[in-house]
Design a protein around this nucleic acid. Structure first.
Lengths: 157, 157
DNA sequence: GTCAAAACCATCGCGAACGATAAAATCGTG
DNA sequence: CACGATTTTATCGTTCGCGATGGTTTTGAC
């Protein structure tokens, strides 16, 4: 282990990795993934699949586009994911009668039932964070604010 | 609107997507990706490749394992990524003489030169966030704290 | 010195994310 | 009504991320 890395004063140009807030977000996201993985494995779900189901538990019968708008994803990501959820028996995919372009995603009975099992998940996450809900809420709001600022900046490009 | 549903006894209700701090992190991470993409495209880099180079600009000649420890990635992710950086001419990959198991990653002259071009990137990100540096710093610290708590919880499992 | 255990990296397969592109349905304008 | 433009979803190729596994080198116990 080469212990001495005196972080030379040589670089006012490029900040270190630990100065990047994007890396803090990136690595926190990664850490959430590691916490969620064992919990979701028991449900046979991946993390993005879980997020899709959360939106459907909130509001069933959404189109692919509507789900994508909520999750900031597009059809090239969602279509294969939704096909897997269909293969697992959690949802159905049917063309909308009034507009054949749209595909409506509906929970099956099994998909609805999964919601009960999934109620154990959020408390486990809160427990793993070990923070009071006020702190979490504030952090969440700050992140949403940051996200909106970033997306606004991208849109203006 | 988003009254946090208490995970009370037998409450079958699942919090909405917008109540999940993990989703705030997930979507903020994606938003960063969208901001970085056009900036890094000019350098011919992806976002993870850029993160690897940032660590190497900080300290050249790290092993694959050392880079992984910093970025929370493992060889199965890093090896192909580093091979691409090698193919691009930014780094070299050589077995360590004193321990043939380790692979040392060193910047090429071209890889070092890229650092100058990349100095334009961080100011663009700060600009896109539109937040004062104190707010950013505090948010970053909170995220690092959250990350450490989550990883600690995983390790205790 | 020997040999099993550990460390380190590479490989494989799968799911996720996205740019580019295509195909089909619908809409809007003339 | 006709027809080009738009909307919506799907497909393809590339990169990332990770679990599982394998191969080589080093370490450690005896």
């Amino acid at each position: 282990m080469s212990q001495l890395t005196p972080q030379a004063t040589l670089d006012p140009e490029m900040p270190g990795l630990l100065d990047f807030i994007c890396f803090a977000v990136y690595s926190a996201n990664h850490a959430f993934g590691r916490v969620y993985k064992p919990l979701l494995e028991r449900l046979g779900l991946t993390y993005p699949q879980y997020l899709v189901l959360v939106t459907l538990w909130e509001e069933d019968g959404q189109t692919v586009g509507a789900i994508g708008q909520r999750l900031f994803l597009e059809s090239n990501t969602l279509t294969p994911l939704l096909k897997r959820l269909e293969a697992l028996g959690h949802v159905t995919r049917t063309r909308a009668a009034h507009d054949e372009r749209q595909v409506v995603i509906r929970l099956t009975e099994q998909g609805r039932a999964l919601r009960q099992l999934a109620t154990e998940v959020p408390p486990c996450i809160v427990d793993a964070m070990g923070l009071d809900l006020g702190t979490v809420e504030r952090l969440k709001d700050d992140l949403v604010d940051l996200r909106e600022r970033l997306l606004k900046a991208v849109a203006e490009t």
